[in-house]
């Protein structure tokens, strides 16, 4: 199994407050890693460290995050974020832009101006995000007129348009209804053929359904990391078992 991201001894701070403590995880390529743990355990911070967003909110980081062997903690954050796209809990399409422009936005910011090529990428991205059939006749309408589930898939299409290698998802379905959630989960399953995906979720069933590997964080520490099947059937540690059984957290 090829490793896409190798996180070594990662410590993350907000001021003096250490929110991630010596976390080391190898994230395999074209697999889905689910990060689980109770609120405040550092799941979202971990995700934000992976694309240098943690620094945007005033945090600092120690340790290394190797993406294909290159330490991204020493790279230009803008370049890093092109390679690691992020989907947030709440769908956040650009409210003043059309569906088409929402998807094309990242391309324009990255200097792509060829209209034909842009249109092709927009269509491909919307197809990959399983949204094309629903919006192909209304590409010029505002993105915020879409349903919550469609907006989230629009955001995924926007992320895919800039052709990242890794997709980071921070509770991407927690604000969606069951049907939309299923669509996002099906999409994750499809996307992992081409992308490496890291998903933070509070939903244990979702983690078990969509991921290949699961990491359990507790109070900033990585407690257990293993194949999802193992974590949800017979984890090594009682603490993990108690958490996935809903005994605490």
């Amino acid at each position: 199994m090829e490793i896409k991201i190798a996180v070594k001894n990662l410590n993350a701070f907000y001021g003096k407050n250490k929110v991630l403590k010596n976390v080391s995880i190898d994230i395999p390529q074209n697999k889905v890693l689910a990060i689980i743990g109770p609120s405040g355990c550092g799941k979202s911070t971990f995700l934000r460290c992976l694309n240098r967003m943690h620094e945007v909110v005033g945090g600092t980081v120690q340790g290394s995050i190797m993406l294909d062997g290159e330490d991204i903690t020493r790279k230009d954050p803008v370049l890093v974020r092109r390679r690691l796209g992020m989907i947030f809990q709440k769908p956040n399409p650009f409210p003043t832009m059309s569906i088409f422009d929402n998807v094309a936005a990242g391309l324009k910011y990255n200097g792509k101006t060829d209209k034909k090529e842009t249109a092709e990428i927009v269509e491909k991205s919307l197809k990959q995000a399983a949204l094309w059939d629903e919006v192909k006749d209304s590409l010029e309408q505002s993105g915020i007129n879409l349903s919550g589930g469609q907006q989230q898939r629009l955001c995924i299409a926007r992320t895919l348009a800039i052709q990242p290698e890794v997709i980071l998802m921070d509770e991407p379905a927690s604000a969606l209804d069951p049907i939309s959630t299923t669509k996002i989960e099906d999409l994750i399953f499809e996307l992992k053929k081409n992308y490496t995906i890291v998903i933070v979720t509070h939903n244990m069933q979702q983690a078990s359904r969509v991921s290949d590997f699961t990491a359990f964080l507790y109070m900033g520490e990585l407690i257990e990391y293993d194949a999802t099947k193992k974590i949800f059937t017979s984890p090594e540690l009682k603490q993990t078992e108690d958490y996935v059984r809903g005994r605490f957290g």
Binding site: M204, Q205, S208, F232, T233, S234, P235, E241, V244, R245
Partner: peptide, 9 residues
């Protein structure tokens, strides 16, 4: 309840 681990077993 969608039990897991020992509960599921």
């Amino acid at each position: 309840f969608q039990p897991v681990t020992i509960d599921l077993r």
